[in-house]
Design a protein around this nucleic acid. Structure first.
Lengths: 225, 225
DNA sequence: AAATAATGTAAGCTAAAACTTGCTTTGCCA
DNA sequence: TGGCAAAGCAAGTTTTAGCTTACATTATTT
């Protein structure tokens, strides 16, 4: 399989052409969000952008490259936020504070453009998706650095960090896409922090493993189907 | 937009034709798993199945209907497992036992056909995806029933159940798709249970909010970036 | 202001992929 | 064993969508 091109075949040099490119990307965003990848065609994008299809192909070598550029601009615009979040992270001394800053940043990012975010994460085929495994690994490592000083009675820190990372992201992502009402509520971040914090800081194993005495107050009201 | 048809235009009546349908579905599975939705074409499916394209269209009105049937059979085959899991759930008295049974069932389900599961969840376009919102709501309600007797100091049970449901599923799903090594490890279920259990059973609010005395042993080794 | 480069567009081409038509073969049943 | 319905297939048709060619227009440079 030949690696598909991704970089534009021509760089816009005049104001006119950068406006054209912007129009194309804006139209592409609209089509993707409104109709999904299945109906995302170059002809349609060009039509909605009000530019000729041939002009589109002057700046984008193929269909995929349009959404690649969209994703590039998307993460680009999120970078300053990430920098802020990182600074805030260093400032907080407590685990709770650090986790809170992290989650808030993630929620903000999802709030910014939830529909587009969903398309990138769920709708694109693998060929057009910018999966950056290096970035994933970096996040994993950073998170591990962050939480490791606070972990108590965690048998496998790598496993725990995986659990935390996936859970945290999934909750925010799912709320953004399926339950915008939840994303809007201020308690959400606190709940995720609680989930993570208590998972990381467990009582010493000797306290729990006594099997008797466990359910002195845990009997349900009625546990029928 | 006219609702696309989904039911076969002709029901197979002889053994020969049910074999044809099976061959089509098997080929469809192969193509989907191996090459993804982008390369999933009716001609290709028919070719691999060794049946004529016209025969395919005798039993499937269109391309989408093939993967819809695939999904139908998939959940069909998972149903007995679910029944078993439900029975096991009732048997366990403790929260830990119930959660453990639930997670184990989910892990088993993902272990059974991880590649196909991934395709259904991540690769299909919305038009071909069988999202059953009623089922989602049912899961949410069932889970709430299950955990509500055990929740301690949880401010909003609905929110908490959302958090649990999404986190649990995401961890298993992500492990199945990105980290098969993790899915194979027996500790995984225990970790997820720990995450859920401790999140649900929190100390009374008056115990934590003393800000001093918090970090008597939590100072990191070295917290440089 | 002429030359040249950048940008824009009308009108297609092409290949692929969804889907049909018309006919033959196969199996069931009296 | 002949009649009939189910099943199968060769060879299309048609539409769609990615992409190109050849030319026209607009800006920049000297």
């Amino acid at each position: 399989m030949p690696k598909p091109k991704v970089s534009p075949r021509k760089r816009p040099r005049q104001a006119r052409s950068t406006a054209t490119v912007d129009a194309i990307l804006q139209a592409a965003t609209y089509i993707l969000v409104k109709h999904g990848w299945a109906h995302f065609t170059t002809n349609r994008v060009a039509e909605r952008a009000g530019v000729n299809i041939a002009s589109l192909y002057q700046y984008f070598p193929n269909k995929e490259s349009i959404v690649v550029e969209l994703q590039r601009r998307h993460v680009e615009s999120a970078r300053p936020d990430n920098a802020d979040a990182m600074a805030a992270l260093q400032a907080k001394g407590s685990l709770r504070g650090k986790l809170g800053a992290l989650i808030e940043a993630s929620i903000d990012e999802h709030r910014a453009a939830p529909a587009l975010h969903r398309v990138f994460a769920e709708e694109l085929p693998r060929s057009a998706r910018r999966t950056d495994p290096a970035r994933e690994a970096l996040v994993q490592a950073t998170l591990k650095q962050l939480v490791s000083p606070f972990a108590r009675n965690v048998p496998d820190l790598d496993l725990a960090v995986f659990v935390l990372r996936v859970a945290g992201h999934a909750i925010v992502h799912e709320a953004a896409n399926q339950r915008p009402d939840l994303l809007a509520r201020p308690e959400l971040a606190g709940e995720i922090v609680a989930l993570m914090e208590r998972y990381l800081q467990r009582p010493s194993p000797s306290a729990t493993p006594h099997p008797r005495k466990r359910n002195m107050r845990a009997r349900p009201l009625s546990s029928h189907s």
